[in-house]
Design a binder for these strands. Structure first.
Lengths: 215, 215
DNA sequence: TCCGTTGCTATACATTTGTATAATAATGTG
DNA sequence: CACATTATTATACAAATGTATAGCAACGGA
């Protein structure tokens, strides 16, 4: 019997490939369907190899979760950095970016939700979520502060924090429903809906944020 | 060998008990840990009985999901009905109720997220989510409309709908983070944060909703 | 009080699972 | 080009899983 020919990859490349295969399978078949064998098949690799990179299946799944959330928050931070200019434009672009593709994605929401569902049964997962959430809040706060200052609104840290919590809530909520593509409305409206709401939340004049909407 | 003694229950009672045991186990151990045997153990019943009530395990899990969402939206509708009086008070109480116990619940959020995570892999689940979401939107719209009218704000159906989408987003987003109890802030602040935000979203005078906060 | 119905237990079984280990071949280094 | 290293395949195995089925016992109607 002849063996399958294979390619030796560097540790990082193979490891990342395994993590991405894990996310693909979990997203497609759910946690119940995410067996070691199916993940290995997706990665084009024999099942035994997984134990060469991860001590246990759960280690791999948790690593995949961290990989996912790191990617999401990193992209969010990049979008925030890219949106330089006036404060309102930066904030608007950040919100808009989170509510358009590729952020709007059934794949990502499915995974995000799946892992939140594991929060309670496994302490490791809740740490990952909390860290990602905190980071997102910090990014939002940093974007909110200059907008408040430029508009002569109260900009103390408590206010910033509470506005960030509220605006993160609306972005998250719309991100979820928009990504699930249930057909109840056109998710192309979401950026406008969100920005109009954020204007109100921050008590800014109408149009302050929505006028920065880009097609 | 002596058999376990047991009690014969009516179909509905036993069925409901099985559904609740399913939700308990899924919430506590996640889908991976939710084996037929463990669910039966939780329900105080032998494993074989499950097949007497459900053709397959997946049937049971899906039924449990519907049972969960029915309960959540029914409670939401009850809260909306109970909150009679001026329009602002009704809306405020509805939002507050969704952001305090028992709605704020790690158990409920964990389950909600777990099943969203199965949306993609199994069409049946996404139907349940969509129906529950639509119902929630309709309740919110019905609460929003009289508030707009009483405040001489535009109250056409498009406006109502978009406000409902935005406000559902913020309620959902805060509900999730508040329930996960990650310790980043005190979730007792959430009702005030949400109502203050909703005032802004609807362009109501400050205090219109927050003054109806009850301790 | 008996007895049939059927809710329920108990057991069996083939599959799938995660993990462990031995064998092999791709690769870089001398 | 030989050779050691180790990434990778292949196989094995016990445990857990979903499902099927045989038979017991609780309860209601006669």
């Amino acid at each position: 019997m002849t063996r399958k020919s294979f390619e030796r990859l560097t540790e990082d490349v193979r490891r990342t490939a395994l993590l991405e295969a894990t996310l693909d399978v979990v997203s497609q078949d759910g946690i119940p369907g995410a067996s070691v064998r199916r993940i290995a098949l997706k990665a084009g690799v024999s099942a035994g190899l997984i134990r060469h990179y991860f001590d246990t299946k759960e280690d791999m799944v948790r690593a995949a979760y961290m990989y996912l959330m790191d990617g999401l928050t990193m992209r969010a931070a990049e979008m925030a950095a890219k949106a330089k200019g006036q404060p309102e434009a930066s904030l608007a672009r950040f919100v808009q970016a989170n509510l358009t593709k590729p952020s709007i994605s059934e794949h990502a929401v499915t995974l995000w939700a799946t892992f939140i569902g594991l929060n309670k049964s496994n302490a490791g997962y809740s740490d990952v979520h909390r860290d990602a959430y905190r980071e997102f809040l910090e990014i939002l706060e940093a974007l909110i502060f200059p907008v408040l200052r430029a508009n002569d609104r109260p900009d103390d840290s408590t206010t910033c924090r509470q506005l960030a919590i509220a605006m993160n809530g609306i972005v998250d909520g719309l991100w979820i429903e928009g990504s699930l593509a249930h057909g109840l409305y056109d998710s192309a409206d979401l950026p406008r809906i969100a920005l109009h709401a954020c204007e109100g939340i921050m008590r800014l004049p109408d149009g302050s944020l929505t006028k920065h909407l880009t097609l």
